[in-house]
Design a binder for these strands. Structure first.
Lengths: 159, 159
DNA sequence: AATCCTGACGAAACAAACTTGCATTTCGAG
DNA sequence: CTCGAAATGCAAGTTTGTTTCGTCAGGATT
């Protein structure tokens, strides 16, 4: 819930750049880096959390370490693009824990999914559940990741 | 650098489940949730960070709030798949701040990129830099995200 | 069977970080 | 130039994170 139209100055952006890399950095160090006192840093962080500029604070888990070594991309094309069916698909994809990311896109596909699974058997079962059991999926194309070259949700920040 | 073969018990998994949702949760509360003392929680977290199970601790920034409202997927197909050229492409894609994620994949494409930009002009400039100026890109397909239905790097954890 | 060693735990003491209150400063509008 | 809103720094208070230390359980050795 963005509480208000946020407008970020260079202090905020500098703070974000740090937190986006490591949000365990003490406010004292952030303050030294951006030339602000720790409380000032703290107030800015809180405000950005409340306004939604900072959407969350999370630990990144290595999939392979928890038995989910396979990352898969899927382009999904629907039969019908009726609003109601689109929304139903969004809800179904979102509900699946294996679906890490889901985007509704323009172009030759309707959805792009990023999926994390333990093995291809699990993926096969998931496709059955998400695609074949749905009557609204015309086709889908699968891309298996051989190398997660760069992974993150880091956003480029203006200077 | 994973220091050793990690093996996670149900305590570790329960802790991970919490941290990957909100890593600002106090260790005391985590302890209550999983039935451990705060120091025990703390030791397990540190170990998972050192062994690479926890790959990072980051704040998630809302792209639209920092002037990067457009998310784009790109499937890239190379001319040559010589190892050296593949590696060069990995390095070039990784180096671009606009490239949030880069995967080397099997299937009808060689790479899939997730890109964040301010506007289509910026994307056009980026394609010029990454694809046209490279002599090794045969073609690429662009998908513009209309809705970021589900975004995150949350990994499903075993029970 | 007794012993030693290793690894993990909890309680308490300790250190560090976060948070709040308040006086002061800054900055833009009138 | 003056005023007021908003942000700042400092200092105190609170919460959290970290270390220490004594205990216990399991496994291997003697």
């Amino acid at each position: 819930m963005p509480a208000s139209p946020p407008s970020l100055d260079s202090f905020d952006l500098a703070i974000l750049a740090i937190l986006q890399r490591d949000n365990t950095t003490p406010q004292r160090l952030i303050g030294e880096a951006v030339n602000l006192s720790a409380p000032a840093v703290q107030r800015r962080i809180k405000r950005m959390e409340q306004t939604g500029v900072i959407a969350g604070n999370v630990a990144l888990v290595e999939p392979a370490a928890v038995g989910q070594p396979i990352t898969i991309f899927v382009e999904v094309e629907l039969e019908s693009e009726r609003t109601e069916l689109i929304d139903a698909a969004k809800r179904q994809f979102s509900a699946a824990p294996e679906v890490q990311q889901c985007y509704y896109v323009t172009g030759e596909a309707d959805f792009i999914l990023v999926i994390t699974v333990a093995d291809m058997g699990a993926y096969e079962a998931l496709t059955r559940k998400l695609f074949f059991d749905s009557n609204n999926v015309r086709k889908f194309r699968t891309f298996v990741a051989m190398d997660r070259v760069k992974v993150g949700l880091t956003v480029p920040l203006p200077d």
